[in-house]
Computed example of a mutant assay.
Amino acid sequence: MAEPLHVKTHDPKDPDPWHALLLDQSIPIAQEAKTALLRGNQSRSRRYLLPIVRPVIFVFFLLVLFFRMISPRWPHWPKTLHNVIYWGLRTFATPDANRLILRHFIIGTEIMQFIRDNAGVAAPTIPLRPTTLEDLRDNTFLQHDLNIYNFIIGLNSELNAAGRELSPPDQIDFSAISDGPIELGPLPNGRLNAVDVQTAIEAYTPVYGFFLSRRDFERAANSLQLDETIAIYVAQLLGDDHHLTFVNNHHPMVPLSLFETGFRLMMHGYDAEALHGYLRQKKRLAGQQKGATAPKISAGN
């Protein structure tokens, strides 16, 4: 398991890099997510296990991609995939890793709803709000990938039909963005639950490619580069593009290699947390400004 993240004293001759990042406020990631990620970064799993298993993962990935060249459609077993992911996370992943994964689907749902609310469109998708690992078995990972494409298609179809583009509304509606810790159910914390989130994600990437058709896997991998697209939509609605500096996965008009999928999945989670955190900041600022401009009522009224 990870060593304690907080340090009691700061030694200028030997500063702790994770302590520095914990204190840093340049990226508006929720504190519970930042702490979970940094604990994973300093864990034995991330430092020692991941470098050992990476060559094995790479060879497995090569075999999967070669197999998919021969058999692009079979097997296509999404239910089996989700059961395998559920079992692995329940058995081996740390509570921090599972917490970050569950959070990801929830904040993704909130960001898409924020865009809908302020763009004035329907663009229907299936909301994903898993609070336990058991919830992930309901096709959650695949539906997450489908949601993003269906959302972009629905949003732009409605805008094109109305002959308009995204622009700031008269009043920004932040009601879709939760402000506070995301409540999750109990997470397993047994002796084997020691694998950090990055090791788990990179290990599952070729598994994802094996159990899904080539089309589904490639669509999922390319969806990671849509982080920039979603961030641009938010920028158009806010009239503010500062958060675009947080985005690391850029537009899939020029797709990246599938071998980078595991790392880009990590950056996808980071991009989503940063964008959600930025919207939280904006929501709080809007609340403060509203309170500051509200008329004061005297005791005699």
Rank of each mutant, 00 (worst) to 15 (best):
H104Q: 10
N118Y: 11
E158V: 05
P130D: 01
R68E: 05
E202R: 14
A292C: 04
A235M: 13
P4V: 07
D240G: 09
I106H: 03
I101R: 03
P55I: 11
N156T: 10
I201E: 02
H268V: 03
N248L: 08
E32I: 12
A292D: 11
R90K: 14
L256W: 14
M112H: 09
V195R: 00
P252Y: 13
L5T: 09
G239A: 02
D241V: 06
D196E: 07
A194M: 14
V121R: 12
P17G: 04
L22F: 15
I177E: 01
I148R: 07
T91C: 07
H144N: 04
Y86A: 02
A221W: 10
G300H: 11
A200H: 02
N150R: 14
N249V: 06
S213H: 04
P51T: 12
R264K: 08
F92Y: 13
I201Y: 01
I57A: 10
Y208K: 05
S45F: 08
A2F: 12
N189P: 01
L285Y: 07
R44P: 01
K79Q: 11
F58S: 13
H76K: 13
H82S: 02
R280V: 05
E3M: 09
H82K: 03
Q113H: 04
E158R: 07
D11M: 10
R280Y: 04
R90F: 12
R284Q: 08
P168D: 09
T80C: 08
R99N: 00
P51K: 15
R214W: 14
P252M: 13
T245Y: 06
